[in-house]
């Protein structure tokens, strides 16, 4: 019995899978475990110190004023980024789905920001949202507002602590809504025209068609988009670095940035690891239900 199991195709398959299984288990899961271990150690100087301290690093972290601000910022950012990218992406998809002329051109234009890295996006938006000053003059968006006579709308953007992270969310929405549009567009194309016709025949207004027919049919796509955007949002770091840094009064600071600073500037490696673990838990809260959901569906099929 055993010999037969090892024979033939199955054996080859196993052999081919083995290297990646080993690599993933060491470099992904191994290091996740290691980070978890470090987060409960006393390694808060350059020299490793693996004395077990339980959850002390976590308690300290949640009492830390900067970390509290970071969590709040992250919640604001995620909420704005998700609703912004989803709604703009959906709107663009619906408009493009109207069989307009030069659809290919518009699709490319909307999708294009996604091909940039967050670093480029960050630098560009930092310039666009540069506050300027009365003495040195305005630049970017403020200059534009001034030129079209809407000078009273000028803002400090990311340098205004009341705006802070919201400015970063605008840049992130600009970058990712085209991607959401592409997903929705694919979904819309997959909905047979007959379904809409049927609804219209039943007397549904165009609004009702979207509300009660199209949107429910697009639910898997919305879910997929939420998962993808959500995990980008929770891990956001490069955009912040390039665009604002932690900002005045940490108004654009996020846990990932704090993690980097506390580990490599303040030498608090255990505290940095604790932030990493918290981020991992938050992402898995989002991903794990989705994985269960999709595995179940596959099993059903």
């Amino acid at each position: 019995m055993r010999k037969r199991w090892l024979k033939g195709e199955r054996f080859v398959t196993l052999l081919l899978l083995l290297p990646s299984v080993i690599a993933v288990s060491v470099f992904v899961y191994g290091f996740i475990g290691w980070t978890g271990y470090v987060s409960m150690s006393n390694w808060n100087q350059l020299l490793p110190d693996y004395t077990f301290v339980g959850l002390r690093n976590f308690f300290k972290l949640f009492a830390h004023p900067r970390f509290q601000i970071d969590l709040k910022n992250l919640a604001v950012f995620t909420a704005l980024f998700l609703t912004g990218a989803l709604s703009i992406g959906f709107l663009l998809a619906v408009l493009l789905d109207r069989k307009i002329r030069a659809e290919g051109l518009f699709r490319t234009i909307y999708l294009y920001p996604m091909s940039l890295s967050f670093i480029v996006t960050g630098v560009v938006w930092r310039w666009l949202m540069n506050p300027g000053s009365p003495q040195m003059g305005s630049t970017g968006i403020n200059l534009l507002l001034e030129k079209i006579g809407l000078g009273f709308l000028k803002s400090g953007w990311y340098t205004d602590p009341r705006v802070g992270i919201k400015a970063v969310a605008v840049a992130a929405v600009w970058q990712m809504s085209g991607y959401v549009m592409a997903m929705y567009l694919a979904g819309l194309r997959g909905i047979p025209e007959t379904l809409r016709e049927a609804a219209r025949v039943d007397g549904a207004s165009e609004w009702q068609v979207y509300r009660y027919v199209i949107l429910p049919l697009l639910r898997p796509i919305t879910l997929g988009a939420i998962i993808i955007l959500g995990h980008i949002s929770l891990k956001i770091y490069d955009l912040i670095v390039a665009m604002t840094g932690p900002g005045p009064g940490f108004s654009s600071d996020v846990p990932a940035y704090f993690m980097w600073e506390t580990a490599f500037h303040a030498n608090r490696f255990a505290q940095g690891a604790a932030i990493a673990v918290i981020l991992l838990l938050m992402v898995s809260l989002l991903i794990v239900p989705y994985l269960i959901f999709s595995v179940r569906r596959e099993a059903e099929v």
Partner: peptide
């Protein structure tokens, strides 16, 4: 008394 754009 500082410049308003100091954070940038």
């Amino acid at each position: 008394y500082v410049n308003p754009d100091y954070a940038a």
